[in-house]
Each structure stands twice: as structure tokens, then as C-alpha cells.
Design a protein around this nucleic acid. Sequence first.
DNA 1: CTGTTAGCGCCTTCAC
DNA 2: GTGAAGGCGCTAACAG
Lengths: 335, 335
Amino acid sequence: MNPTIKDIARRLNLSTSTVSRALTDHPDIKKETKALVLQLARKLDYQPNPIALSLKQKRTHILGVIIPETSISFFSKAISGVQEIAASAGYQVMICSSHESVEIEKQNVQTLLNSRVDGLIISVSKETRNIEHLAKILDKRVPTVFFDRVCESLHATKVVADNFTIAFKTTEHLITTGRKRIVFVAGPQNLYNSRKRLEGYREALKKYNLTVDERLIIYSNYEGENVKTYTESLLALKPPVDAIFAINDRTAIEIIHLIKQRQLKVPEDIAVVGFNNERFAAFFDPPLSSVDHPAFEMGKAAAELLLQHIDNAKLPTQKRVIKSDLIIRASSFKN
Amino acid sequence: MNPTIKDIARRLNLSTSTVSRALTDHPDIKKETKALVLQLARKLDYQPNPIALSLKQKRTHILGVIIPETSISFFSKAISGVQEIAASAGYQVMICSSHESVEIEKQNVQTLLNSRVDGLIISVSKETRNIEHLAKILDKRVPTVFFDRVCESLHATKVVADNFTIAFKTTEHLITTGRKRIVFVAGPQNLYNSRKRLEGYREALKKYNLTVDERLIIYSNYEGENVKTYTESLLALKPPVDAIFAINDRTAIEIIHLIKQRQLKVPEDIAVVGFNNERFAAFFDPPLSSVDHPAFEMGKAAAELLLQHIDNAKLPTQKRVIKSDLIIRASSFKN
DNA sequence: CTGTTAGCGCCTTCAC
DNA sequence: GTGAAGGCGCTAACAG
């Protein structure tokens, strides 16, 4: 059993308050008593009980995190970022994953609020359309930061990537290297970042006076279900497609795999660009061009903002945009 | 502010004890009172304060997890497994990552114990040789389960993959498909699972009367540092190597990348097998043979065992072995 | 400078 | 059946 303040007090014939004061560096305390207490505390390996502290101070020093899936690399990297900032500020992190389900997401919110976390960092599930459960958090004035998959209609602090810009730039890259029939594999359109990316794509085509062929826009989810089905239909189109901008790297490599099976060449026949710049992208054959999505930085930014909001409840909400980069590799070179 | 038992008591002109009894389904309580309390509790959306409960019951219903890195896919999948079991048993999970540093690992142990978690699930850092800090946990009788990277000398409950067997089988697969000069990229040898894999490799060679060429055993870390350096030396060896069994898929594809740059062919000239069976393995060119390491199942098993040990302190320690599978794809076909 | 008292939210004797 | 009292570990206001 861990020693308590009481144990120390008893042994030293002091009151618990005195011991508490010694331990917390209170000014009103005699040097010798303090030394005595500290010495014994060290000897007994005294560790303050954070639960008792939480009960008293109504602060748990725990940040709650809700993400769609722990094992999606973007989110696991974001978590690393959150952890880093949290740890350096003396906070713990409690993570729940919604498994892309609104229902579970609702439960997660409840669970974390019940646990009395000091604040929340949330990236919504792809099912999330109704956002009452999220609005309620804000009503309760629980400090909250949304990141990546945010809700436009929610007035809250947010951390996002520059989805529009990067999708625009990537599409532009494909156009300026000679592509005209560019497929866009878009994510669920209830998600802010998916919508923004699609806008960027459309805008780039517009700038170069290319007409938008709606058949070239695929509304997928992130999982890569049906990749085979839609890729095959795409490859059957006339006139043929000459570029594919995929929702993520996993999808991109699966598409490349299918393209190769058809005896077509990447990038000669079809250029492919992915999203996330996973570590394997550079070693793929051909090396995969990809948008470097700053997961770690986004996690860090979210945690930093959250801590600020916890420290100062009156801080106005803000939106932080993290820059993405297009990493051009062989899969999208000029043909 | 969340309503408390006191709030309910006041409104109903009852004592807090009565309300508490009503809420906890105590037998000594009049049905009507109970109904009244429950009704108001629901109306106020009363949620018991787990912190107060923890303080009293000395149980936090939190499992602590220490892993080397959140963003390594094996561990993020394992975490999913832990979460799933924990959630279904009403537990929360608190995750710390050691970033492969013993020092941070020590701090993590301290942090989680200070947080009064009910138990620990640990996979050690690759730096971990001295295990005093881990032994201390067991001395303190904190329920603990080690998984994957376990310490042989620690008498504790463990969850491991059948590293020896699967390395043996994989090596055998390479031998029986005609390979004779098989490179083994081994992990840090202070780690139990790395050692076991190497043993499996050696044993398989022995069975087929192949001599072990120590130059073909690479002692790497998991990160894939120096891959380029050692791969180039390997490719320069005489007689030439004809197979490489890599420590993980990331390393495997980087090696394949380097092999191709040399105008050598996989699998014709050199067969390559990876470890972890990441999702991209199937789409790689050539599709990568890989050992399917059951991360999710290991996480689940660890959590299940831990919960059992929490519920029953006298439970003897045990070791659970989870079966791995070799997924054979084109990168290691017979030449 | 130090001790006493009270209370965070809850549960659990012990009375009645 | 129900209420009052006490305590989990800690801190803070109030006395001295």
C-alpha cells in the first residue's frame, strides 16, 4: 500500500496539514520541519494520490481523445503528438475509438465525461451527421478541440489541414504534367475535410478549363472497400482516364496493383497520387507520390490548444490550419 | 456541473445514504423511494462520480498500457484489442509509450502506478535490459501482463506469439523452395521474441544440414536504420544470397526496393519474406510473403488475462501463446 | 509556523 | 426502511 500524508504525519508527530504544506512548498513552514518531512517522504517513496487530488480540485489532469480508429496510421500518429504535449504538461491521455460508429462515439463522449476528463480532443466518425452529442459538450462548456474530421457547423476550436489548397495543388500538378482525365477518389462528403478536398479538385479543373466529369468522382469511404469494383469500371471508361488521386495510400497502391494487372503502366498510362505519405510509399513500385498529411503536428497542435483552453476558459475559439505537402515521386511523373 | 447524490437527496428530502442505496440497488429500500430517486436521477442525468468511487474503493477501473511506440502498427492494433476487452468490462485504458527508451519506460511505470491503475499491460522497449523497474511492479503485487516483447527472467503472466515455430516454418519454407543462402534480419537480441525467432531460423537450417553463415545474420533494430548499408553488403557477398527473411514488412519492402535497383529480381534471384502482414503487403510488387502476427488477438488476450488477475489476485501466472501464420505470396515463390 | 475543522462525492457501518 | 456519522487522501480556511 502506498504511504499517505497521514502516515508521514503520524511518524513525525505532525498534523497532516503541516505535512501537506511541506510537500507543496507552502511559504508558511519552518525549514527544518520541511526538510524532515521531505526526507521521510522520500524514504517511504511517498507519491501523492491523484484521485484524492482530483476529487478536491475537480481536475483530473486527463485529456480525453475520441478518434475513429486507433489502428489507422494517421490517428495513431496524431495520438503520439497529443501524448507528447500532454506528458510534458503533466497530463494523462485517455483514448476511445468510435470504430467509425456514431453510436459508439456518443457512448465515448459519455464515458469520457463521466471520467471527468479536463478536456476533449475529437475527430468524428464517418457516420457522424447528427451532431447533438457534440453540441452538448460545448453547451456544458467542456474544453474541446476538434481535429482533422471536424464539423463545420460547430462553433469550436479546430485543427485542420489545408485540405482545399493541397487538393488544388495536387490536381494542378497532375494537370500541368499533361493529365486531362483525372479521377478523384473522394471520402464521405459529410466530413469537412473530404468536402474541402473535393472542392479543391473541382476548382483546379475549373482554373484550367477542364470540364468536371462526374463519373470520375468516386464517393468512397476510407476503408478501401469496393476499390476493385470502381477501379475496374474506371479503367473501362472511354475516353480512358489518365490520372487517379486516391483518398489514401492504401487505396492508391491497391489501385496501382489493379492497373498493373491490366497491363497498363504507372505513370506512363495512368498517374497515381495517394494521401498520407505512409512510410511504405517511397519504396513502392513505382514510388508513390503522396500528400504528406501532418498527423503528428496536428495531434500536437490539438493538445496545445486544448491545454490553453483548459487553463483559460474564456479563450475565444480558434481554427489552426496545418500545412500539408505534396511529395512528388515516380508514380505521377510527366508522361 | 454534474448533479451529485446530495443534490438528489436535497430535492427529495431524503438522506444521501438513502439515495445511494436506491442507486446501488440495495435490498433495504422501499420500492416507492427507490422509484422516486431513480426517476429524479434520470431527469437530472445523474452520473456517479468515478473519482469519488475510486477514492473509496481503491479501484480506478483503469488499465495502464506501456508500449514502445503508439504509431507502430503492431502496437496500435494490439491497443485496439486491449480497448475492446477493457471497454466491454467497464474499464478505461491509459496508454504510455516509452519511445523505445528504458528511462521513459521507468517513468511510465511510475506515472501509471501513481495514477493508481488497477493493472498493467507491458511490452518492453528495445533498450530494456535492466529490469529492476519491472521486477518492482511484481513485488508490489500490481496485476501485470507482459506481451510480445516479454522478459524471460520475469516470473509473470505473458502473452507471446509462437516466434520460434513461425521462424522455423518460414525458414523451412524458403529452404524447401530451393533457397540455400538465407539472410535473417534479426531484431535486438535482448528481446525475447527476437531471440526466439533467431533460434527458429538456426534450428531450421540445422534440420536441413545447412551451415549457418554468421555473415547472413543481421542484428538490426526495428526501425529500419541502416537497411541500405547492410543490404548492399549482403548483395555483394559471394556466393550470392538467395533469400532474405526480414524483421518486418517495412524493412522487407525497402530491401526489395534496393534489390530491384540492382537489376536483380524478386523472387527469381532472391526471395523475400516480411513480418507483420501489413495491409500493403498484398498489393506490393511482387506481393509480399509475410508472417501474420496476431496483434489484435494478442492485445485481447493480454487484457483478458489482466482482468482475470485483477479479479483474482491469487491466480497463478501463465503464459499464453498465440499462433502466427505464414502468408505465402509471390515474393517467395519457388524459383 | 502549526493544528483544527471541514469538505470534495460516495459508501458503509451503526443506530433508530 | 431510513438517517447520522465517519472515512477514503488531500487541501484550504480559520485559529491560534
